[in-house]
Simulated assay, not measured.
Amino acid sequence: MPLNLDTDPHLNELKKLRHKLHAAAEVSGKEQQTADIITDFISATNPDELQTTIGGCGVLATYDSKKAGPHVLIRCELDGLPISDDIEADYRSETDGVGHKCGHDGHMTIVAGVAKLLEKHRPQAGKVTLLFQPAEETGKGAARVMQDSRFKNLAPDYCFALHNLPGVKKHQVVVKNDTFAAASVGLIVRFKGATAHAAHPEEGNSPALAVAQTIQSFSAAPQFHVPLEESAKVTVIHAAVGERAFGTSPGRGTVMATLRTYDDELLAKLKDHCIQIAKGYADTFDLEIDVEWVEEFPATVNNEEAGEIIKTASEKSGLEMHQKKEPFSWSEDFGHFTKEYKGAMFGLGAGKDHPALHAQKYDFPDEILATGISMFMQIINETIDRS
């Protein structure tokens, strides 16, 4: 497969695809229209195998050289976010309250661009499979895909993914050894006491003090339970006590928090500490307690060999590269793949002054589509060459 494949003839078509995907933004687990758009586009590239409904709405397309060699997986995400799209463009999201505010429309389009090139230029050896994964934003999609028997049958040797990075110079490739993105999990604590008339709160059992003290103790947990040389955050994202009823002393309270570390083992310890804190206040104030864990993301840890492949691909592509010292503090469920397969993720600059990820004004910059396609094609070539 030639190293310098020209993406220019496909860019107008790809931009139209990106805008169509942007307008059709759907939340995690409900990406059927998005999957249909992708399936229609990918089927026209004549993959050797095309599979749908993988782990939900996921799509898999495999391009086979029919020769012995490594099996390379390139992964992107289907889902948007429950955030309103506040951009001035004719392709603005048609779904109220939902938008592609993390750039997954761009990630999909980059991988679709790889499909366009693989249509005419199969890999020199081995196979390439393109995965359009559902439900990344909730942390559920990767695990569901990996549990799907059809994905298990693929048994890829390597896996790669990218994420666009606002605040970073356009086209710059950002690499990181070892941990690339943080582990995180959502915690919901529900306290149950007993309501009473607001004139006689002593006749009930309000969880108000338990909620207040839990908020304080959660926020302080990293200081008292995490070693100085390690990093962790507990961010309280929601709290509520009772209802808007001025005649009633509350009987229920809720605290929600996100726990975040760069290490899965440290996250497990932090989870235990937070449970001990919450149960301690439940005991102190004689309350019932219910605990729920949601949206769990493992740390995304880059394999050394896969990371070197990305670096070499960047150098051969003539792109500026930045070696990041600290992991990104946000989470990515690509970490499920890097736990099982040799894999790595890299960042691609979206522009120094570009609106931030998850902002209502955010829109993926079409100018970096060709760069992302070129990087993935170079990664495929480099992986095959090393085999």
Rank of each mutant, 00 (worst) to 15 (best):
F218W: 10
E77T: 08
P355M: 04
A199G: 13
G307K: 06
N153L: 05
P207Y: 06
V291A: 02
H22E: 08
L259A: 08
H10D: 15
G251A: 12
A89D: 15
Q172V: 15
G193T: 06
K192G: 13
V175Y: 12
A359Q: 14
A370P: 11
A359W: 10
H100G: 14
Q360G: 00
D96K: 13
E31V: 11
A161W: 07
T235K: 07
H225Y: 15
P2I: 14
V185A: 13
E26P: 02
D86C: 07
V72H: 01
G69V: 11
K66Y: 02
H354P: 01
V294I: 03
T52K: 10
G204E: 09
D385F: 09
P123W: 06
V168C: 00
K170Y: 00
Q33M: 13
E31N: 07
H100I: 06
E119N: 14
P250D: 12
P201S: 11
P123M: 06
L117N: 06
Y158C: 01
E88M: 13
R190M: 12
S84Q: 14
D48A: 04
G103A: 07
H354V: 05
D286A: 14
E265V: 09
V175D: 03
C57L: 04
K30Q: 14
A24K: 01
I38S: 05
S206M: 07
A245S: 10
T248D: 05
L117V: 03
E340P: 00
L3V: 09
E119K: 15
I379W: 01
F160K: 02
F151T: 04
D36S: 15
I380W: 05
H104R: 06
P156A: 06
V291K: 03
T52C: 11
S387L: 00
L319A: 05
D64N: 10
G141Q: 03
K279A: 13
Q172R: 11
I275K: 12
M108I: 05
E292R: 12
I275N: 06
C159V: 15
F151P: 07
K176N: 09
N4R: 14
D64L: 05
D363K: 10
A196D: 09
I379E: 03
D263I: 02
A199D: 07
Y91D: 08
D48G: 14
H273L: 00
L131K: 10
S206Q: 04
N12W: 02
A182C: 12
A299T: 01
H225V: 00
T338H: 04
K116R: 15
G97V: 12
K279L: 11
R260Y: 09
E295Q: 12
L81S: 00
A44T: 13
G351K: 09
F160H: 11
W293Q: 05
V255S: 09
S374V: 12
E295L: 06
E382C: 04
D96A: 13
V128T: 14
L187W: 10
D366K: 02
L60H: 12
K339G: 11
L319E: 05
D64H: 02
V294S: 10
V59K: 04
V173I: 15
A125T: 06
F337K: 00
